[in-house]
Design a protein around this nucleic acid. Sequence first.
DNA 1: GGATCAACGAAAATGGAGCA
DNA 2: TGCTCCATTTTCGTTGATCC
Length: 372
Amino acid sequence: MAMYAIGLSVLQEEISYEKTQVKQVAYADDLTGAGKISELKKWWALVEKNGPTIGYTPNATKSILIVKPEHYENGVQLFRGSGVTVTKDGQRHLGAVIGTEEFKAKYVEEKVSEWVKEVGVLSGMAKTEPHAAYSAFTHGLQHRWSFVKRTIPGISRLLRPLEESIRKTFLPALLKTNFIIGEDMRELLSLPPRLGGMGITSPEKMAEEENRNSINLTRSLTEKIVAQDAKGETDQNVILELKKTMSRNRQSAQMESLERLKNVMLVETVRKIHIAQETGASNCLTCLPIRAKGFSLNKQEFVDAVALRYGWPVEGLPKTCVCGDPNNVDHTMTCEKGGFVCIRHDEVRDLTASMLREVCRDVSTEPTLLPL
DNA sequence: GGATCAACGAAAATGGAGCA
DNA sequence: TGCTCCATTTTCGTTGATCC
């Protein structure tokens, strides 16, 4: 990338703002210019003339001129025969979009429609492999819409179908819940695992903040592009400080959200959230479900793990224990006729023995004691 | 009063995912 | 390749208790 920029700087000397009155910016091989149409025509001619000599061959068929509706005819006339497409609507640009509000909305709607389909596919997978589907969503899928959220303002409303798809299709398939996920539970699930959530963020709610943060973070660069200042440098310390501030703001907003939820949720749920915040309590959610390493939970294990995390009813649990008492998760853990008391004891015993075997000889578990 | 240590929290570093 | 975010781990600085 750096070498490409150095190479392209030779061309930019020839087509600079001082010579063409066109404000411009280049990202790798994508060259963008803004100005009056007549100036742009001259600028384009210079690009075509000087580009190939440094190895930059402009492709007219892939080049777009975006004009205001009142200048459309003029644009078509000036660029006739050049191969450049002239439009008054807009065009996709570096993963974002430039153009009219209608064009931007149409672009985002198409993207959202595509993502909703992907969420649907993942929901289908979640029915048989919920752990893998959850991991694919949190580690991968939800990052796909981050670039659009950062670069296109005012799209929160357009992202609502995606949020609806997550809430009504993905979460029920993933969690096998037979109850409707309300506003509060959805907010809890959108918090990071370390705060007791599941890190399934809401694209609708995050869009405005992410766009605002992106604008603030790139403001210095934007000002330099507008001023066509190619020599000035952005103060990295200022950017670093901005990042820290944003990170702090995000964390404090998460804490505020958590505190609000604690006030409206059941005492048992709040206690579960508190336990879920313990170190290591969310490892099964944050690790990659690699089967060979034993990190993968099957569908029963995953659904049970989430049910235990939030105190939801565990499916398939008998209503009455063999001891005769009413059965529930707490009773299962303490009933002397069940196996969990022994399992817990044996796991601690075996782990201690295995660690001792690494440094001691003659380690045995619960040897028969010699008579007194 | 100075030296030492443990505990704690904040900051930095690391690793893994995405995107252009 | 270089940027983002997030979770986790490591490092560093501060504080308080204890001992000489």
